[in-house]
């Protein structure tokens, strides 16, 4: 008779040996998938940041090459990393403005720290512009809201689809919130995609005017009016030139 107890011990060792490769492979795959997921999410964040950096660089290049009337006022805008906290940082440095100060919104950690130029420009025609915009048929299906989540949703959608209606929506939205630097930024984004949206030009000019850069606003409106002979642009140009706006 065999020594059964010894055989049983050997059998247990054999089972471990038999299933060790399977266990090892399973563990390897598990660890591999965890590492991959971590790495993948990091890559996604990095790629989004990189994408945004590229956009900013492109924006600068666009400023220099296509909008010579902006050259006296450099703009630096940092857009948020959407996957993390939705921090939106926009910095506008205007060479002609000495009133720049940083404003940190402490009410919501998700909201951006903003460097904003203050301006003393009037807002006489603000209400009129709003009404005109509402009359205009713009393909925006989203509700206009100041909810930061909705705004970031629109931003996210814009980065995915590059729909100028989305960027115009953001420009108008920020303008209505008196956040003129961001309004100007999103108007430029809109113009990069299409130069045919009149509202975008008007927001761009009005934002500049609100930020105290009246000359720049005039140059924008002249450029657009020369190109399209737009009545609205000419009216606004006239109002700004005559200090009635």
């Amino acid at each position: 008779m065999h020594n059964i107890e010894l055989l049983e011990k050997q059998w247990k060792r054999y089972q471990i040996k038999k299933y060790f490769p399977l266990i090892a492979v399973a563990l390897f795959l598990l660890i591999g998938s965890i590492v991959f997921n971590m790495f993948d999410s990091k890559i996604s964040n990095d790629s989004l940041i990189s994408k945004q950096s590229n956009m900013i660089a492109a924006h600068k290049a666009y400023d220099k090459e296509n909008l010579p009337f902006f050259t006296h006022g450099a703009i630096e805008i940092m857009e948020p990393a959407f996957s993390g906290h939705q921090a939106l940082v926009a910095a506008v440095i205007n060479q002609e403005s000495n009133t720049t100060e940083e404003i940190n919104d402490t009410n919501n950690t998700d909201r951006p720290a903003i460097a904003e130029s203050k301006s003393n420009l009037s807002i006489n025609n603000m209400q009129t512009d709003k009404e005109e915009y509402r009359k205009q048929k713009i393909k925006i299906n989203l509700e206009q809201t100041t909810d930061i989540n909705s705004i970031t949703d629109v931003m996210r959608r814009f980065y995915e689809s590059k729909d100028p209606n989305d960027s115009l929506f953001l420009a108008i939205n920020y303008y209505e919130q008196n956040d003129y630097s961001k309004a100007f930024y999103w108007a430029i984004e809109t113009n990069k995609i299409t130069e045919d949206l009149e509202e975008s030009w008007l927001i761009m000019a009005k934002s500049k005017a609100k930020m105290g850069d009246r000359n720049e606003a005039i140059r924008i409106l002249r450029a657009y009016a020369a190109k399209t002979n737009s009545k609205k642009a000419l009216d606004l140009l006239n109002q700004i030139e005559t200090n009635q706006w």
Binding site: L7, Q10, Y14, K17
Partner: peptide
């Protein structure tokens, strides 16, 4: 199958 494997171990068909 445990018994068959034990017999296999005993006869050297498999090694622990």
């Amino acid at each position: 199958n445990k018994i068959i494997e034990m017999a296999g171990l005993k006869l050297g068909y498999i090694n622990a």
